[in-house]
Design a protein around this nucleic acid. Sequence first.
DNA 1: AAATAACCGAGACGGTACGTCCCGTCTTCGC
DNA 2: GCGAAGACGGGACGTACCGTCTCGGTTATTT
Lengths: 183, 183, 183, 183
Amino acid sequence: MAREKTRRKVHDAVLSLAAGSRVSTITMEGIAGRAGVSKQTLYRSWSSTGAILFDALLARSTDAAGRVAVPDSGDIRDDLLLLATGMIAELTDPAQEGLLRRVTAELQADEDLALEYRETLLEPQLGAIAHRLDRAGVPAPDDVAELFVGAIFHRWLLRSRPFDPEWVENHVDRALTLAGSVS
Amino acid sequence: MAREKTRRKVHDAVLSLAAGSRVSTITMEGIAGRAGVSKQTLYRSWSSTGAILFDALLARSTDAAGRVAVPDSGDIRDDLLLLATGMIAELTDPAQEGLLRRVTAELQADEDLALEYRETLLEPQLGAIAHRLDRAGVPAPDDVAELFVGAIFHRWLLRSRPFDPEWVENHVDRALTLAGSVS
Amino acid sequence: MAREKTRRKVHDAVLSLAAGSRVSTITMEGIAGRAGVSKQTLYRSWSSTGAILFDALLARSTDAAGRVAVPDSGDIRDDLLLLATGMIAELTDPAQEGLLRRVTAELQADEDLALEYRETLLEPQLGAIAHRLDRAGVPAPDDVAELFVGAIFHRWLLRSRPFDPEWVENHVDRALTLAGSVS
Amino acid sequence: MAREKTRRKVHDAVLSLAAGSRVSTITMEGIAGRAGVSKQTLYRSWSSTGAILFDALLARSTDAAGRVAVPDSGDIRDDLLLLATGMIAELTDPAQEGLLRRVTAELQADEDLALEYRETLLEPQLGAIAHRLDRAGVPAPDDVAELFVGAIFHRWLLRSRPFDPEWVENHVDRALTLAGSVS
DNA sequence: AAATAACCGAGACGGTACGTCCCGTCTTCGC
DNA sequence: GCGAAGACGGGACGTACCGTCTCGGTTATTT
């Protein structure tokens, strides 16, 4: 509904606010003010602050049309390493981390946003990993993909331990172990 | 600082509010009103709504002194099954789920609360599981414990898939597979 | 800034509250509630409870544009009697007395309100009296006007003695005595 | 009821608070804290903040037992000048002005305090002046005393004009004019 | 080109909750 | 056993946002 120009102004405002202060203080009024847009215009296109932040995140990741780029080097271990590294890079990117945490928080109370999140981000991501595992002959690829992503996400969300490269390698190896005799 | 009587009134109020309406609408004022307590009394003992909810959850889980009861049947597979089942039961308990989601959401923006959460709940839980795995001879027990818990938590937090008993069994088996040749 | 409709609602609320209970218990929240207006709307237009009460008093006195009606019978003694009687009537009017006392109290701590009070109410009143005295040839009319008003105000503010008609006459005569040989 | 030591501590606290910040922000809690006295102790001896401030003012003026020192030079004009000058000095004394304004404000809503004020301060003051005028043969000395004091008080309370020495002299002369042919 | 509609900025508005300050009372605990 | 220290229920403060609602002043279309 919103004109493309408006959406861009709003996304820019969100990113600039996210860079300049705690993401948890971003509000509809703040976005409207920064974007030079009236609150009514925001409400016409988005149902909540969380929805705007999510939209801004999406717009940031999907410049081209092709969503999640799945690496395909031929070697499953290399691919998993790339996937893990890429995911960690995104989660800890200073320009995104705050927004991701805020959106994850809002998912807990907003079923609609949660649904959109799953369909738009989560499923493609898990699907891509499962697909890659499947091609490599790993049994129960969906479950292993969940295991693979779940541990990384858990560590990030609860800030339980830092991500160090050695752990990532071991994490990949553990995932591959589950593939049984797969090389 | 707060008297024991006050704390109990507050915890009761939180649980009754959590049972009666969406947890995301619980406020300091609402708790104060329900508990028959002044706002100042709340702020004297807790720094935020999240801190109160967390405290109420804690008080609910820790009646006796001994935290997380670690099952010890002698059989590692049985123990992991019990652990997983218990964790899922807690996460999906109608009396707790909303509170847990709200607290998890607030952790994202509240570093102090996050620290307390890790020290009080997360580490004991992961530690207990790791300890059990260690005793069974599983290598890298901390990482495997994280993997084990992470997948369950991920599925719950993002509501990606329901918990069915068959999956739980497979999940346990996958964890044991990582133990290598361990029986 | 505030719409005319809002101002009227607020003034009505103030007068109804002033009539129904002790003026010293009137609060911003009470006015907002009675007027069916949000607190923010009050703060947008007035800086304090005192400012609202003062505004309500003003709106009550200044229906037409012409402020203080100065009597002009041709006879200075009659005029002063009318002025004194009118002033006393206003000060002791049950619908106003409480508000006037409250406003006078707040003037003591609120320099801005005090300034507005002087410019809007006090100076026109004193000026009108002084002007009348001046026309009658009284020397130092400003000082005599202050004397004239000051005694009435002092008696009212400190409730030292009731206003009886005989005293008013003598008060007028004393003021005229200061005019020397003026008839 | 309060022990003398306590009263002194409280009075000192009031004066120090009055010197250090706006008198309108003085509170029971603030006095208790500064005086190193519990709130309960304050409430045992005084019914309101206003009562404490009034008491502190009184204690300040009445070191010796003899209240208002009435000058008696033999010359009524000199005496009135001294009285006016003394009154103005007191009203504008930086250590007292704020307290006096605060107390005057509280009088408007607190009948008990108002009564005490009249009996303890106002009547002795007016009486002393009236007595002096009476001795000089001035007719209606009470009314003239009120006129004399009322104008000064009015000018102070509403801050309408500064007190300059010339005005004081004229003010005294005007009061004497009312004495008719009295020398 | 003028008339007319759609849109949008600005922000007032009724509300709810925030976090703080005091009130006046009650409880605890140390000297 | 008195009194400081301060917890407590309560009420108001002044502020921040919420989501809705009018306003005018462009823009764009339609005639």
